[in-house]
């Protein structure tokens, strides 16, 4: 029986303390991860068997940490990653995989590294031109980016300050062309129709059995009791963000992607 535990974060904090202690106590071990297709296939099988429930089959997290980032907060080096897999994180629900051989641990670690969505290949676009396009097309109306030490922009869309560490160039390109394909949770387009006949569009901030909170496209929050609403429609098939397929030519798309990939504010 699996059941969800809601207090992961407290234990994660303990785990961080423990990791700091381990790091202080142990010399850094240089680990070379295997990279053959056979090793990765074996690592994938082991991963699917033991890690999927918490970290997701594609590593994008859930109960456990998001492993699809290029930089893992608790496992910056391959040695850290292998050690966490091997001994777990005491005080958290991350168990030890001491049953695995050293080779198997490194195979799983190699597979985990392969989950990173960041495409490390060079991006062909021009970052400066992309930044200008970002401004020209009003992206900052909805998205925040850290610039000059200040987080600047709107709140209707996801914060993009670290997007270059979280998503690959190809993923970002697809998101610009077909935004609903990867609609982020927390930004589900939602429309409410009040009993008095008023319609408000926005993204869903909160919805429960008795109340709904919506953020409209001006960034204002609206809180409703369901008894005051005629309809609530959450539509995952569309995105508040328009498609840029027709708005940008191929070069401009490359430039904008290059700018987004360059946004690498360290993750909190």
């Amino acid at each position: 029986m699996w059941a969800m535990n809601v207090h992961r974060f407290a234990r994660m904090a303990l785990g961080l303390l423990w990791l700091a202690a381990v790091a202080a106590a142990q010399p850094k071990e240089a680990v070379k991860l295997p990279d053959s297709p056979e090793d990765l296939a074996r690592g994938k099988k082991l991963y699917l068997g033991s890690c999927t429930y918490c970290h997701g089959p594609t590593g994008d997290g859930g109960k456990g940490a998001d492993l699809s980032r290029q930089e893992l907060v608790q496992a910056k080096t391959d040695g850290d990653l292998a050690r966490i897999i091997e001994v777990g994180i005491p005080g958290t629900e991350m168990p030890s995989a001491w049953h695995m051989t050293r080779r198997e641990v490194t195979q799983v670690a190699a597979y985990v590294r392969s989950l990173a969505k960041v495409d490390v290949r060079a991006v062909s676009g021009n970052v400066a031109a992309g930044k200008a396009l970002y401004a020209k097309h009003g992206c900052a109306g909805c998205h925040t980016v850290k610039q000059g030490g200040v987080f600047t922009g709107g709140y209707m869309g996801p914060d993009l300050s670290s997007i270059g560490m979280k998503r690959s160039a190809s993923h970002l390109r697809e998101s610009l062309i077909n935004p609903p394909a990867s609609l982020p949770e927390g930004f589900v387009p939602t429309r409410v129709l009040t009993v008095s006949g008023k319609t408000i569009d926005g993204v869903r901030v909160h919805e429960d059995t008795f109340a709904v909170v919506l953020r409209d496209f001006a960034g204002n929050n609206h809180s409703y009791l369901r008894k005051d609403l005629k309809e609530v429609t959450a539509d995952r098939s569309r995105s508040p963000m328009p498609s840029y397929q027709e708005k940008l030519n191929a070069t401009e798309l490359d430039d904008l992607v290059a700018y987004l990939v360059s946004l690498k504010e360290p993750l909190q």
Binding site: K45, L46, Y47, L48, G49, S50, C51, T52, Y53, C54, G56, P57, G62, P95, S96, A97, W98, H99
Partner: peptide
């Protein structure tokens, strides 16, 4: 949910679930 099957080899005291879900 999407159900996933993975390898499962029993070792005493070790998680033994052979997959997961999303």
């Amino acid at each position: 949910a999407f159900y996933y099957k993975g390898e499962a080899e029993y070792k005493p005291g070790v998680i033994f679930n052979g997959g997961g879900q999303r």
